[in-house]
């Protein structure tokens, strides 16, 4: 197993948000977690990435057989956990290329690989930019500086393409995207499905799953997964809304 979450409890500001969550992801699988607002979707993503304010109070998370919760956020990233942020931050004056080169080299160092040389790196990221239909001028711009909402999201997927993680957690990457941008993002994700890389897609809406076909769909409500199924579960949700399934669960 790549990721095994066992009875996870997590709090934000002393309020328990995740209340005993179990989830197992095998290499190459695409899992979608859906749920109404406030169900704990983003908290799960942040807690897995190791954000300080998201306090894990109970349970365990094993990643590649290691205790994920015991690792610093940057160590998790270097071990191949990638979080596509719901709200990517701007870092003025730091170019995309600069951040990515530092990030990529940190990851390579972890794997015992030598630093990538500048020319090879530029060739590499230009290919990846093409994949994401990202204009090359984005590469030299400040990280997310003055980007539109859609550009920020596309940039997240581009970064994922460059860093080639083993587990990509995409937190509401589809929100705020028009249909064309959604297709570009979905296309970028699909091109990175290689049978080894695993994805955890966190979304409120079913429409993302029209373009990225998941292996498993889970419904998260009140901090727990209340139902799991195949991609048909997502369609069912789309048709009946969350109310029915929530009522059935309670």
């Amino acid at each position: 197993m790549l990721l095994e979450i066992n009875n996870l409890h997590a709090s934000v500001n002393d309020v328990e948000i995740i209340k005993g969550l179990n989830l197992t992801i095998a290499p190459g699988e695409v899992h979608a977690i859906m749920g109404p607002n406030g169900s704990g979707k983003s908290t799960l993503a942040q807690a897995l990435a190791g954000r300080e304010d998201y306090l894990v109070t109970d349970g365990s998370v094993s990643y590649k057989g290691r205790d994920l919760l015991d690792m610093e956020p940057d160590a998790r990233a270097r071990a191949g956990v990638f979080l596509g942020f719901q709200y990517p931050v701007e870092i003025p004056g730091v170019s995309n290329v600069y951040l990515l080169k530092a990030a990529l080299n940190a990851r390579r160092k972890e794997k015992g690989e030598p630093e990538i040389d500048a020319i090879e790196f530029m060739r590499f990221i230009k290919d990846k930019a093409k994949l994401m239909e990202l204009d090359e001028k984005f590469l030299s711009r400040g990280v997310n500086e003055g980007f539109s909402g859609g550009e920020k999201k596309r940039n997240e997927i581009f970064q994922m393409a460059v860093l080639e993680p083993d587990l990509a957690i995409l937190d509401e990457t589809d929100s705020g995207l028009d249909i064309d941008a959604l297709k570009v993002v979905a296309n970028g994700v699909n091109k990175q499905r290689d049978g080894q890389r695993s994805f955890l897609l966190i979304t409120h809406y079913q429409r993302l799953l029209d373009y990225i076909e998941p292996d498993h769909v889970h419904v998260l409500a009140n901090g727990r997964i209340i139902q799991s199924g195949s991609k048909e579960l997502a369609l069912e949700l789309e048709e009946h809304g969350y109310d029915k399934i929530l009522a059935a669960a309670s």
Binding site: A77, R78, I91, G93, V94, Y98, A102, R107, E110
Partner: peptide
């Protein structure tokens, strides 16, 4: 956190942000 999530140590992340701030 954003920089650390991309794999940079805290110190490298601070340096990068400060240097970006001073770039002009």
């Amino acid at each position: 956190f954003y920089c650390r999530q991309r794999g940079l140590s805290e110190e490298d992340a601070v340096n990068m942000i400060v240097n970006g701030f001073c770039k002009e």
